[in-house]
Each structure stands twice: as structure tokens, then as C-alpha cells.
Design a protein around this nucleic acid. Structure first.
Length: 298
DNA sequence: GCCCAGGTGAAGC
DNA sequence: GCTTCACATGGG
């Protein structure tokens, strides 16, 4: 990572970073985050309560905000620009499935998302397709988030509703966003966080097992959603969410289609994929989902 | 209509 | 322990 160069113009602020092995399109569109939208100039999203447009240009990553920025740590942290990627790569097992996934998903990175948005989003993900999760979250933000400043001519943008904002609603308010049986789960999680019964900021200081148990106290949070929050929002690189795709991937690629329980798969993953198993998981997930598709440019 | 989707919890063996 | 099923909603 290099220091960003900054060129203010009007209310807008811009920055540029030199990156290697960083595929913005794959990273923003691989199913770890749900709020990024492609437009003619890049990707629009909301990070740390700010509207931002990201784009890539060869080895350069560009960012544009609606308001002046005194500093960019909030975005560098989200994009994990300080990560020593070659060091992560060296921890992966050298086997045929992993080599294929790495070749197919070159440049895919993990983001460091806000833990609350991550928890709420994955609570809404249960037995939903990614496009439908995106739609539900968009309705939630438009209905109950706060309007954010955007550049002239851009479509409206909204913050992700805080735990307090959601805690003040009732179940039918949430069901109006078409989240179905997930509504009481989201409401319960929002109230637990708003009332201080769950401290998301404390989780990174705990062991993986302790943090997982804290999250699983919430109704609607099992091992899969807990590990998504720990991997994408709390900085546990060894967390390994096992969903239908990973289940399929592991069985097909490592177990010749033998049937295994999620518990057995989790144990295998922890042993086989090493200290950054979660990164390996995201490569296998994206590899399985895009296998057979024509390569998209981004 | 039927089946599936980045699951979970309750109830049945 | 493991298996089965309901739970909302939308798309193929």
C-alpha cells in the first residue's frame, strides 16, 4: 500500500492507492457485502456512514466521496489495504482444488465490515439468494436508515440503520421490508445490542470459540451466521462459515461426494486450511458459484 | 405447482 | 448424536 494522493474538488474528495492482486469487482460482488452497486464509473456504496464510489484502473484503486475527507483510514481499514497478501497466500494448502480456486478468483480479498451491519445482513441471508438479500437490505436502509449526502446527480444513498433505530421498531415494520420469518431475529439482535446485552466491539478480543458462543445466544444465529460475522466483521481469519455452497465444494472437491455433517466439515476445514481458513473459504465459495460462467470484466 | 436459496431451532428418533 | 420439518418470499 502507498500513501493516498488527494485532490479535493468542490465538496467532493478523491484518493488513489497503488494495489497488487486486488480485484475490486470480485471483492465487492462476491457475496460478503450486499450494498455495492455497479454504475458507469465504478461501484457505489456506503462505508462508515459515508457515500463512496470506488473504481479500479490497472494497479490503481480510486475512491471518491461526496464530502471532504481529512483522512482515509476508515476506507483503508474497510478494504484491508494494509494486508500482507503474499503472507496469507503462503498459508493455504497446496492441493488441486485450492489451486483451481486461487486461479479462478485471483484478486479476491476479504473486507473488514461494520460488525452490526454484518450481523444484521447475515441474519437476513438465511435461505435467500444473494440478489434477494440485497433487495431486502436496500428496502431496510431506505425505510429506516438516514439519508446521506451524495454528489449532485447521484441516486439517493442511506446509512445502514443502527441497532437503536431498529430496536425502536416493531416486527410488522420489519416484515414490511419482506424479510419474512427473519424479522423477529433482526429485532431481537438489534435490542440485544442496543440494550448492551451483546457487545460487538468486545468480540475481537475474545477467542474464536468464545466470540462464536456470544453470537449464538441470539435467536436466528447458528454456526454459519456467527462465523460470517466473525470473519467479515470481527477480524477472525480462521472463522469458516459452512453454507450450502461450501458444503457442496468440500464434499465434491475433497470427499468424493461422501455425506458429512457440518460439524465434521468444520473440523476438517480448521485442520486443513490453516490460520486463514476463512480466506480459503471465500475463494472456494466464489469459485463454486462462478464455475462455468464467462469471465466478467470489472 | 414444485424446488431452491450464503440457516436455524424444535421435535422426532 | 443425527434427520426432518416449518419458517416467508421470490425466481426459475
Amino acid at each position: 500500500m502507498t500513501e493516498p494522493s488527494q485532490l479535493p474538488s468542490g465538496g467532493v474528495s478523491r484518493a488513489t492507492w497503488a494495489v497488487t492482486d486486488y480485484d475490486l469487482a470480485k471483492t465487492l460482488n462476491c457475496g460478503q457485502a450486499f450494498r455495492w452497486r455497479r454504475d458507469e464509473r465504478g461501484w457505489q456504496g456506503v462505508v462508515a456512514g459515508r457515500w463512496v464510489r470506488l473504481s479500479s484502473d490497472g494497479g490503481l484503486l480510486r475512491a471518491e466521496t461526496a464530502l471532504p475527507q481529512a483522512a482515509w483510514q476508515w476506507l483503508e481499514h474497510y478494504l484491508q489495504l494494509g494486508l500482507d497478501w503474499p503472507r496469507v497466500l503462503r498459508t493455504f494448502p497446496d492441493d488441486a482444488p485450492m489451486r483451481a480456486a486461487l486461479a479462478a478468483c485471483r484478486g479476491l480479498r476479504l473486507l473488514r465490515q461494520d460488525p452490526w451491519e454484518c450481523l444484521a445482513s447475515f441474519l437476513l441471508s438465511a435461505t435467500k439468494q444473494i440478489v434477494q438479500i440485497q433487495t431486502i437490505i436496500e428496502r431496510l436502509c431506505q425505510s429506516y436508515g438516514a439519508r446521506l449526502p451524495t454528489p449532485a446527480g447521484s441516486v439517493a444513498a442511506f446509512s445502514f440503520p443502527t441497532p437503536e433505530q431498529i430496536a425502536s421498531l416493531c416486527e410488522s415494520d420489519l416484515r414490511a421490508c419482506k424479510m419474512g420469518f427473519r424479522a423477529p431475529h433482526l429485532l431481537g439482535a438489534a435490542r440485544a445490542v442496543a440494550e448492551g446485552r451483546l457487545d460487538l466491539e468486545e468480540l475481537p478480543a475474545l477467542s474464536l470459540e468464545e466470540a462464536r458462543e456470544h453470537l449464538k445466544r441470539l435467536k436466528g444465529v447458528g454456526p454459519k451466521i456467527a462465523d460470517c460475522v466473525l470473519l467479515f466483521g470481527c477480524g477472525f481469519p480462521q472463522a469458516f462459515p459452512v453454507d450450502v455452497w461450501i458444503n457442496r465444494a468440500l464434499r465434491e472437491l475433497y470427499f468424493r461426494n461422501r455425506k458429512l455433517t457440518p460439524r465434521q466439515l468444520g473440523a476438517f476445514a480448521a485442520e486443513h486450511f490453516g490460520p486463514h481458513a476463512g480466506y480459503a473459504q471465500q475463494y472456494l465459495f466464489h469459485y463454486m458459484r462462478t464455475r462455468g460462467e464467462q469471465k466478467l470484466s470489472g
